[in-house]
Design a protein around this nucleic acid. Structure first.
Length: 806
DNA sequence: AGCACGCCGACT
DNA sequence: GTCGGCGTGCTC
C-alpha cells in the first residue's frame, strides 16, 4: 500500500526540478496522483502536485498537511500533457503543471508565529535578560495572542525581523503561517520614493560602495516616479533591498491588486443560417471524427469571409451533443469579440470566456464551472488550452498561424503543438482554421497529418476584393512624395463619395516615429535597451517600447547640440495628417497603441466605426483583424513590405498573412471591395501572391525556400539566448557555450548558427547573444541540453521552435 | 521563491 | 576583531 507521495512543489524557481517525497497521512487516504495538496517546505507551506506514489516510507519525511480541492485537479491526460511540455520545451515540471492551475498558485500563505510547546519561561527570562525591553514586549504579545501575523508584529516597536530570528533560534516561538486556499486577486509590489528627489539623490551619493544594490534601486527610482518590483528584476533588485531602503525611510512599497476585469460580451441574436455547400462538406468530414471519439485533426484553409466560424459552432454543437467538452482558442480575446459573441449567442451559458486579464478568483470560478460540468465550452486565448475539461471532444484553433499562440516565457510552448498532444490523448478532434495557414501546418496537411479542407470562396459568392499594387518607386519618380499614393487617394475618394467606409493599415514596424538629429544623424535611443525611442503625442513624450520608460523630448541633440532635431517616420499620426489634408470632410478614427489603452477601447472604436460614426479607420495591425463590417469597401495598405525586410526567415510569411488579412476586410457585404497595396517590392512573391489571394502560389515559393535552406518544416530550430549585464562577459560566455555545444553535438545531425547578437542587442540593460540550432532530431538536442545542465542555467534562455529567430 | 550560510570589505 | 551586505545552495 502506497503511503508516500512524490510531489512537485509549485515554486517559481528553475533550480527545483525533481519531485519531493511526503508521507500520505492516514486521515487523507484519498490522496493519489493528480491531487493538489498543501505541504511543508522549508519553514513554509506551499502548494504541491502529486505526480507519483511510492510503497515504502523512507525515514525523515514530512507529511502532507491538507488537500486543496475535493477532487484530483489533474487527470491523467492533463498530467501527461504537462510532462510532455516540460520534456519538449525544457521547462521544469512545476512550470508546466502551473499552466493548469488558475493563478500562479492555489495557496497563499501569510507569515505568523506562536509560542512553542516546549517553551520554558525561566529559560526565556534568562535569554531575554540582556536584550532590550522590546524583546520582552514582543514575546509577551505573541504568547498572549496565540498565532500572530508578521503584519501585526511589525506594528510593535523594535527591529521585529531580528527579534523573530532570535526567538526562532532559541525555540521560544514556532512558525504558524496561515494558509489561504481561496483564489484571491494577485498583487504586485509598487515602489515609490518616500523623500524628495534631492534628498534621495543625496542619500544615493552617501551610500557606501558595498550597498550597490541599494544605489541601483535609488537611481532607478530617481528616473521613474514609480516602479513595480518585477520591472527591477534585471537590476538584481530583490525584496531584501527594498526592505532595507524602506527601513531607512527612503522609499515606500505597497502591494496593489492586479486589475480585476470582468468580460461582458454583447450577446448577438442567433440567426438560423443555412450552411453553404463547402461548409456542409467540411462538417461531413469533421462530424464523424467527433462521433467516433478517436483523434483526428483538420486544417480548414478558408479565405476571409468563407464562413469558418459557423463550422466551428456546428462542430462544437456536435461534441456537446455527445456530452463532450470543447476548447476554442482565439489569438487574442480583445480582437475577437465577434467570434465570442457568436458562440455566446449559439450556446449561452454553456460558454466560459477566459482571458489573461481575469483575476485568479474569476479564473478559478470559470475553471470550476468546466470541471463540474456546469459549462461545456471554453473560449479564450492560448491559456484556455489548459482548462480542466474532463471529456474533451474537440479543440479548435482559429487563425492558427498567429504568433500569439507561442508563449514567450517559460514554458515556451506553442498552443498548436500542445493542442495536438491534448487532442491525441483525449481522442478529440483538432480543427485548425486559417486563411493563411502557417507553412508548417500546410506542409503537415499535405503530408496527411491533418485532413485538408479548402474553402476558397466567400459565403454567398461575394467576390474577393480587387487588388491594385502601387510601386512607390514610380510614384516618387513621378514626383509624388506623399505617403498616400495617387491610386490610394483615388480609391478613397471613390469610397467616400459613395458613403462607403475605408480601412487603412499602417504596418508599424520600421515606421514608428523616432527622433532624429538632422545635423549629425543621431537617433535618440533608450539608455537601457538598444532600441529607438518612439515619439508619442499625448504627453509630448518619448517612450521605449521594450522597457516602457518615458523620456522628455530634448530641445537640442544630446550628441552634437544641434537644435535641428525632429520626429521622423510615418506613424499613424502622420498618415492621419496627410489624410486630413486630402479629405478635410472625412471623419477619421485612429486605432493604435495610443488610442486603445483601455481594455475595451478596440471594441468601442470598432463599434463606432461599424455604426458609421467615422469614414476612415486608420491603424496598425489590429485594424486588419477580426471585424466584419459590410460597408467597408476600400482597404489601403500604406507600406506592404516593411515586415518583409526583417532579417527573419518568416518575414515573407508574416507579410503575406498580414496583406491577406487586411485585404480580407474589404467587401464583406453586398458591395464589392477594393484594395490598394503600396510597396517598394512589387515583384516579391509574398506581395504578388498576397495581391492575387493566391495562398498555394505563396506556399510553393516559400516551401521551396525553406527546403533549400533547411528551415522549418524541414528541420526544427532551437534558439539559445545568453544574457548578461556585461557586454564582454556575454560574448565570452556565448562563445564558450557554442564551443561546448559544437563538441557535445558532434554525433547529432545538427547545425550551430552563431553566436550572433540578438536583433535588439540590449534590453533593460541586459545584453543578449543568440545561438541557433538547426536540427532534424530535436529530442536528441534537448536531452543533451538537459544532460549538460544548460536548461537550468540562470543566464540562458532556451526557446524550442522559436517564432522569432533574431 | 525564501531562508540559512558563509565570504568579504568597512568600522569600533 | 565584529557587523552587515550580498552571492550561493537547499528545501522531502
Amino acid at each position: 500500500m502506497a503511503n508516500t507521495a512524490q510531489i512537485i512543489v509549485n515554486i517559481p524557481a528553475r533550480s527545483i526540478t525533481k519531485p519531493f517525497s511526503y508521507i500520505i497521512p492516514a486521515h487523507l487516504p484519498e490522496i493519489t496522483i493528480g491531487w493538489r495538496v498543501l505541504v511543508p517546505f522549508g519553514n513554509r507551506k506551499v502548494e504541491g502536485f502529486v505526480v507519483g506514489l511510492e510503497p515504502e516510507c523512507t525515514e525523515g519525511l514530512k507529511a502532507i498537511l491538507a488537500i486543496l480541492d475535493d477532487y484530483p485537479w489533474f487527470d491523467d491526460n492533463m498530467l501527461k500533457t504537462a510532462k510532455w511540455i516540460s520534456q519538449y520545451y525544457l521547462s521544469s515540471l512545476a512550470e508546466a503543471m502551473r499552466l493548469f492551475v488558475p493563478g500562479l498558485s492555489g495557496v497563499k500563505t501569510q507569515k505568523a508565529y506562536q509560542a512553542s510547546a516546549a517553551m520554558d519561561y525561566e529559560a526565556a527570562a534568562i535569554l531575554l535578560d540582556n536584550k532590550p525591553e522590546e524583546y520582552r514586549q514582543a514575546l509577551t504579545y505573541i504568547y498572549a495572542h496565540g498565532p500572530v501575523s508578521l503584519k501585526d508584529l511589525a506594528k510593535l516597536p523594535g527591529n521585529i525581523d531580528a527579534m523573530i530570528k532570535f526567538f526562532l533560534q532559541h525555540k521560544l516561538i514556532i512558525h504558524a503561517d496561515t494558509v489561504n486556499t481561496r483564489g484571491k486577486a494577485s498583487t504586485t509590489t509598487i515602489i515609490n520614493l518616500a523623500v524628495s528627489k534631492e534628498t534621495a539623490a543625496q542619500a544615493e551619493q552617501m551610500l557606501p560602495k558595498t550597498r550597490a544594490a541599494q544605489r541601483r534601486l535609488l537611481q532607478a527610482l530617481l528616473q521613474n516616479n514609480e516602479l513595480a518590483l518585477p520591472q527591477l528584476r534585471h537590476l538584481n533588485i530583490t525584496q531584501a533591498t527594498v526592505k532595507k531602503l524602506a527601513e531607512q525611510g527612503l522609499i515606500t512599497s505597497r502591494s496593489v491588486p492586479v486589475l480585476r476585469n470582468s468580460y461582458d460580451s454583447v450577446c448577438q441574436q442567433a440567426a438560423e443560417v443555412s450552411l453553404t455547400q463547402p461548409q456542409q462538406h467540411a462538417l461531413q468530414l469533421i462530424i464523424p471524427a467527433i462521433k467516433a471519439g478517436t483523434h483526428k485533426s483538420f486544417l480548414i484553409h478558408g479565405v476571409t469571409g468563407s464562413g469558418k466560424t459557423l463550422i466551428y459552432i456546428k462542430a462544437v454543437a456536435e461534441a456537446r451533443r455527445h456530452n463532450r467538452q470543447a476548447i476554442v482558442l482565439v489569438p487574442e480575446i480583445a480582437l475577437t469579440s465577434q467570434l465570442v459573441a457568436r458562440f455566446r449567442a449559439a450556446f449561452g451559458n454553456d460558454v466560459v470566456v477566459i482571458h489573461s486579464k481575469l483575476s485568479v478568483g474569476e479564473r478559478h470560478d470559470a475553471w470550476r464551472r468546466l470541471q463540474s460540468g456546469q459549462a461545456g465550452i471554453v473560449v479564450g486565448a492560448r491559456s484556455a488550452l489548459f482548462a480542466p475539461a474532463r471529456d474533451l471532444g474537440i479543440i479548435i484553433i482559429d487563425e492558427e498561424h498567429e504568433f500569439t499562440y507561442k508563449q514567450e516565457e517559460s514554458p515556451r510552448y506553442h498552443a498548436r503543438q500542445v493542442a495536438l498532444i491534448r487532442a491525441r490523448l483525449a481522442g478529440a478532434a483538432l480543427v485548425l482554421g486559417s486563411a493563411t495557414p502557417a507553412i508548417e501546418t500546410y506542409f503537415q496537411a499535405l503530408n496527411g497529418t491533418h485532413t485538408l479542407i479548402s474553402m476558397n470562396k466567400r459565403v454567398d459568392d461575394v467576390p474577393m476584393p480587387e487588388v491594385t499594387l502601387v510601386d512607390m518607386r514610380q510614384e516618387l519618380a513621378q514626383g509624388r512624395r506623399s505617403v498616400i499614393s495617387l491610386p490610394l487617394q483615388e480609391m478613397l475618394a471613390r469610397a467616400l463619395a459613395k458613403k462607403e467606409q475605408a480601412v487603412i493599415l499602417l504596418n508599424r514596424r520600421g515606421y514608428s516615429t523616432f527622433v532624429l538629429c538632422r545635423e549629425c544623424g543621431h537617433v535618440l535611443k533608450c539608455r537601457h535597451c538598444d532600441i529607438s525611442l518612439v515619439y508619442h503625442t499625448p504627453g509630448n513624450s518619448l517612450r521605449c517600447h521594450y522597457c516602457q520608460e518615458r523620456h522628455t523630448v530634448p530641445d537640442t541633440c544630446p550628441e552634437c547640440g544641434s537644435r535641428y532635431i525632429r520626429y521622423f517616420g510615418a506613424g499613424t499620426q502622420k498618415v492621419e495628417e496627410a489624410l486630413t489634408a486630402l479629405f478635410p470632410a472625412a471623419k477619421i478614427v485612429r486605432m493604435d497603441q495610443d488610442t486603445t489603452r483601455g481594455k475595451m477601447a478596440h471594441d468601442k472604436i470598432l463599434a463606432a466605426f461599424a455604426a458609421g460614426t467615422y469614414d476612415i479607420l486608420l491603424g496598425t495591425q489590429m485594424v486588419a483583424k477580426g471585424h466584419d463590417i459590410p460597408n467597408v469597401t476600400a482597404v489601403g495598405i500604406i507600406s506592404a513590405d516593411t515586415a518583409l525586410n526583417l532579417p527573419d526567415f518568416r518575414a515573407a510569411e508574416r507579410t503575406f498573412a498580414l496583406l491577406t488579412q487586411a485585404a480580407g476586410r474589404a467587401g464583406r457585404g453586398a458591395k464589392s471591395g477594393q484594395v490598394v497595396m503600396q510597396t517598394y517590392n512589387p515583384e516579391h512573391y509574398a506581395i504578388t501572391a498576397g495581391a492575387e489571394h493566391n495562398y498555394p502560389a505563396f506556399y510553393e515559393h516559400e516551401v521551396a525556400f525553406r527546403r533549400q535552406l533547411n528551415y522549418p518544416p524541414f528541420a526544427n530550430l532551437i534558439k539559445i539566448t545568453v544574457q548578461a549585464a556585461d557586454e564582454i562577459m556575454v560574448h565570452q560566455s556565448a562563445n564558450k557555450l557554442a564551443g561546448e555545444l559544437a563538441q557535445a553535438m558532434a554525433g547529432i545531425a545538427a547545425d550551430i548558427i552563431g553566436p550572433f547578437p540578438a536583433s535588439v542587442h540590449k534590453i533593460k540593460d541586459v545584453f543578449r547573444i543568440n545561438i541557433l540550432i538547426k536540427t532534424e532530431d530535436p529530442a536528441a538536442v534537448t536531452s543533451l541540453f538537459r544532460a549538460l545542465h544548460i536548461s537550468s542555467r540562470k543566464d540562458v534562455v532556451i526557446d524550442v521552435d522559436p517564432v522569432n529567430v533574431i
